[in-house]
Amino acid sequence: MEPVDTDFDYVARQSQARDTKSRFNWLYLFPALGVVWLLLLLAAATFQFSITDVVNPVMTIMVVLFFLMVGFLFWAMAPQGKR
């Protein structure tokens, strides 16, 4: 008799062979937020509206996002252990 091949075996192998580079996709969030900030600054310079009330909170958010980016980098570069 020949051994029976099951789909479960193939599915289990595919889930372990996950692409570890996909964790770096979360880092695309940060340049996108930077582009939005630059568009706001460009609009303020072009249309001459005041953004003095917005600058302080946005700078605070950028400092927080910097620490989040560092955390995401450590998470994305961490080796995956097989469990």
Rank of each mutant, 00 (worst) to 15 (best):
Q14L: 15
F47V: 01
K82I: 03
T60M: 13
Q14F: 09
A12E: 13
W37H: 14
Y10A: 15
L42S: 13
K21F: 11
R23K: 11
F8N: 07
F24R: 03
L68A: 12
G34A: 13
T6A: 01
A44Q: 08
Y10S: 08
W37F: 15
V64E: 00
L27H: 04
Y10Q: 11
Q14W: 07
S50E: 14
L38N: 09
M1I: 05
P79F: 00
A44F: 06
P57Y: 02
A32N: 10
S15D: 00
Q80T: 05
V4S: 00
V55F: 05
I51W: 02
Q80L: 07
F47I: 01
I61W: 10
M1P: 09
V4I: 08
F47D: 08
Q16I: 00
W37G: 11
D19N: 14
T60F: 14
T60S: 12
T20S: 11
D9V: 02
A45N: 15
V35T: 04
P31L: 08
T6G: 01
F24P: 02
R83E: 12
L65M: 14
P57M: 00
F8T: 00
W75R: 13
D5G: 03
I51P: 03
A76S: 13
V58C: 09
W75P: 03
L73I: 15
Q48W: 04
V35A: 15
L42M: 04
D19F: 04
V36A: 15
L29P: 01
A12W: 06
Q48H: 10
T52P: 01
L39P: 00
L38G: 03
M69V: 00
F72Q: 10
T20P: 09
R83V: 04
G34K: 06
V54R: 02
T52C: 03
P57H: 06
L39E: 06
F24V: 05
T20F: 07
N56I: 14
T52S: 11
G34H: 03
M59G: 07
L40S: 05
V70Y: 08
L68Y: 05
T46W: 04
T60W: 09
G81T: 07
A32E: 00
L33D: 05
T20D: 01
L42C: 05
T52I: 07
A43C: 12
V63R: 06
F30H: 15
M77N: 08
T52H: 08
F24Q: 04
A45F: 07
